[in-house]
Structures are given as C-alpha cells and as structure tokens.
Design a protein around this nucleic acid. Structure first.
Lengths: 147, 147
DNA sequence: CTACAAGCTCAACTTAACTTGAGGTCAAGC
DNA sequence: GCTTGACCTCAAGTTAAGTTGAGCTTGTAG
C-alpha cells in the first residue's frame, strides 16, 4: 500500500491514545478539523496527531481546552502548520510552563516556611497573600478563583 | 472586646476569601469541621483558616478535594493540630510539589525540543512517550499524593 | 453480495466543585 | 418587640470534559 495520506477517526484514536468520542468532542470545540468523505465520514490529515498530542500534554498541566483552542488560533487554517508555526506556539507554551514552574516553587517554599513553622498568624502567612501566590489562572483546578 | 475565640461562617468566608457555600461544601466533604451553637449555627475554631488556606493553595496546583481530604486525615481530630502535625503534612506536600515541578520541567524541555523542532515523527516524539510523561490518569493533574 | 465492524448524530448521563434559590430560623440594633 | 441581615437545609442548576447509548449508515473482507 502507498503511504496513508489521511486518517480515519479510529486510526487517530488508536495512534493518539484518545477515544473516538473525545476526538468528536475536540472537533466540536474547534480544536481539530476534519473533512468528510462522500459517505460523511471524517478524514484527518496527519498533523492532527500533533495537535492531539499537544492537547493532551497541555491538559495534563492544567490548561483548559478553551485556552488550548485559543493558542491554536495562532496556527494557520489553510495550510498544514510548519515548523515556524509550531515554534511560535511552543514558545508561548514554554513561557506559560516557566511561569507555572516558578509559581509551584514559590508555593513549595511557602509551604515549607509557613506551614512547617507552625505559626498561627494566618494573616501574615505567605499562603494567604493572594497577590504573591499562584496567578488566578492556576495550574490544575477548574474555574479557579474566577468570581 | 476580648479576642474572638470562634468564628462564624461569614467571618471565615471573609477572612479566607472563599464563599460561604464553599465552606458548607468543604464541611460536607469532611475537609473542615465546625460545632453548632444552641441555635444550630456553625462556629469554627481559628485553625479552620489554615485549613482553608491550604485547601485553596492545593487546589491551585491541581490537587483534588478528595486528595486534600485524605492528606488532612493525618491531622488529629480531637485537638488543634500543632506544629508537628502540620509539619508532617507539609513535608508530604513538598515532596509532591517537587515531583510536579520536575514533571513540568520535563514537559517544558520536551516541548522545546520536540514541538519546536518541527519534526513530524509523532511516534518517536517524547510527547507521545507516555511512560515518561505525567502519570496518565485522566484529565488534569489529579493525584499528586500517591496512595 | 452480504455480514459486521467502524462511522455518524444527537441526547442524556457522569464527576468535581461549587453556586443559586426557596423556604424557614436566629440574633442584634433601634 | 420588631425588623433586617446572617444562618440553616435541601434540592436543583452550572461548567468542563468527556462517555454512553440508541438508532441508523458506510465500507470492506470473505
């Protein structure tokens, strides 16, 4: 057989490790795109695998699908994203990760200093100092501090 | 006035920055405890503020309430947790945070190397190498504290 | 050419972590 | 002694991110 050009959802599911239903879902959310065969079945181009990989990775660090979708908007619709396109995205992502890492460190040190110390002055405790704490876009929790 | 010994839920809400309904919720989940006045109103001892602070902080790094509750089980029920009690908890937490930080770093470097490179061999990509990635248990970064 | 695995759509269910609302009680100031 | 704001309970609603199921269509291997 000639090298496969396009992938069915089953193939994408298998290769990416996510469920078919999740792929449908991502598509509905605008995270991935497909075109249809004459029989109305989805066909994906190969770069969908990269997208899905990135989606999973991003989710694992607590980035919501909405945010991922937003990041993906920097990718071109019309052509397959090239190195430059991905590079841009990865740079933005790396910055976000750097940020989160530093937040976590702060937290860890705060915990060590503050909880460990047994002090009871909660008001002065760094853990209570919201400004200096994890940004409101926190790492994992859903709808974090958003009022 | 003499120093306030106990706090109403409204006071805790104000001082901790979480909603009254959330405090009710945490109590239902066993994360905090209160006793009742003769008129059936909740009264909290001061250490609830520390607990709530920790709950929020932990959530922000993606620890679920269930796990926080589990961690809190190491705290004594009968007496106010002392320095030693909190110290124990913070140590466990710090390890988890250290772990998470290192995972994020790995991820960041993976992104930089892999996405940035523009390579299309998804299969060999570190991002696809699940074993070496964040624990693959579902969405978000649940489960920092391994049972 | 037919069986049956793989697809499709759409609606409903799931879990976490809360919020909102209804309907009723408590307590502190005037 | 009453009014008003803080509380109470319990049920139902909300959002994210999917999953599950029913009922129907496609496509491919034998």
């Amino acid at each position: 057989m000639a090298p496969v050009r396009e992938l069915t959802v089953g193939q994408v599911a298998m290769r990416s490790g996510v469920a078919v239903s999740a792929l449908h879902f991502y598509e509905a959310r605008g995270l991935i795109r497909s075109h249809r065969t004459s029989g109305n079945q989805r066909r994906y181009s190969r770069d969908v695998l990269r997208r899905v990989a990135i989606i999973r990775v991003a989710q694992e660090v607590g980035i919501s699908l909405a945010e991922i979708a937003r990041a993906f908007q920097s990718l071109p619709e019309e052509r397959t994203p090239n190195r430059e396109d991905w590079n841009l995205l990865s740079t933005a992502w790396r910055d976000a990760l750097d940020h989160k890492i530093s937040q976590l460190k702060k937290l860890r040190d705060g915990l060590t200093d503050c909880i460990g110390c047994g002090c009871m002055s909660i008001d002065k405790c760094p853990l209570r100092n919201k400004e200096d704490r994890l940004a409101r876009e926190g790492t994992g929790a859903r709808r974090l501090l958003v009022p």
